[in-house]
Nucleic acid binder design. Structure first.
Lengths: 193, 193
DNA sequence: TATAACTGTTGACATTTATCAACAGTTTTT
DNA sequence: AAAAACTGTTGATAAATGTCAACAGTTATA
């Protein structure tokens, strides 16, 4: 259960974890299985856990007045998922996070994470690296959202995340891109000509 | 020149800076004045400095094939500005950053920043806090961009950043929101009814 | 296996937003 | 003081995207 996470940490740090650190990591992370459609977090709740995805696929979304989902993040194996705003600020989340596929997660609380960050340098290093990458990905997406047409946004997405194209249906990807499923269908038709 | 930054650091850290740390900070940050329209960074260059704004207003934007600006960030006194992707990865930036008003900046290189982060705990603390806030602001903006109409995005912006409404003209704010100046003008007319 | 749910496409039409051009008032520059 | 640049508005029209409904093929479920 922990192999993938330990591998992930070692690949993102300059020095491998010691045996003792491996134990610290294992004891801080709680295994949890979710069936498709089960929630990791529901709107209005405080996000008590961040999760590393060992297996499966998750989505994070808000729901508007009309009851329409707006997907802010998609994530699969080897990604972390959680609502950072709620997790850090302890405020009720505006997002839902649920399993799109049956998934295996490793959960960590804020307290345990802070503890790990201070005790295990490799974890702090990994977290910094993740933060950088995350920031860069968000900035690109933000720039795309104000600068590019639906067609270009879709093309960029398909290039950047080929795995996601296999794992999520079009209406999910459309929502992530901020367009309707019908518009995405037409954009694809246009491109294929 | 350094007072505002030192105040900013102390307000964002649990312990005030020691005299020695104040000297470290001062020696790492290079004062620089920019006249309106002068560049801090131009597309294609690597972002060598991050800047703390002591006075003035800056904008960061990409330019598309048609020559149209798309503003990704606006910033004023007490904010940091720079292209983090380029600054960290040392890649050519896709953004321009220029002064919207005559400005006074304090510049720091990547090497000096890393040095400060490791030597001055208050700086590391401040950086973490800034990162969190930044992340939260970006996530909200991202969610808004895929979920809300131009009208709601404008309303949220006006509420969140009243200062910016005073400092930047409408066509700049329109660009930041991902709409044209004409659409913003019409949205405002609509709201005022 | 029958039924329901999910996924993707298409057509007709509505709404939102962009584009282009013109104009007026203001501010900046010469 | 005159000219130029900037800012904001408006009208006419075009383009992009959304909405609603229908349909077919697939997949999941009772």
């Amino acid at each position: 259960m922990y192999e993938l996470l330990l591998k992930y940490i070692n690949e993102h740090a300059t020095k491998p974890l010691t045996d003792n650190e491996v134990e610290l990591v294992k004891s801080a992370l709680l295994p949890k299985k979710l069936r498709k459609k089960q929630y990791l977090l529901q709107e209005g709740d405080v996000c008590k856990y961040f999760a590393f995805i060992v297996k499966g696929a998750m989505r994070q979304y808000s729901v508007d007045d009309k009851g329409i989902d707006h997907i802010v993040y998609l994530s699969i194996e080897n990604w972390w998922v959680g609502d950072r705003e709620s997790f850090v600020m302890l405020t009720p989340s505006v997002y839902n996070i649920d399993a799109w596929e049956d998934s295996e997660l490793l959960l960590i609380t804020r307290a345990d994470l802070l503890n790990l960050l201070s005790q295990v340098p490799a974890i702090a290093e990994m977290a910094r690296l993740m933060d950088e990458r995350n920031f860069i990905a968000m900035q690109r997406r933000l720039n795309a959202s104000i600068s590019f047409s639906a067609e270009k946004r879709y093309g960029d997405f398909a290039n950047s995340y080929p795995d996601f194209m296999q794992r999520f249906p079009q209406h999910i990807i459309a929502s992530y891109l901020g367009i309707t499923k019908e518009t995405l269908s037409r954009v694809r038709k246009q491109i294929s000509k």
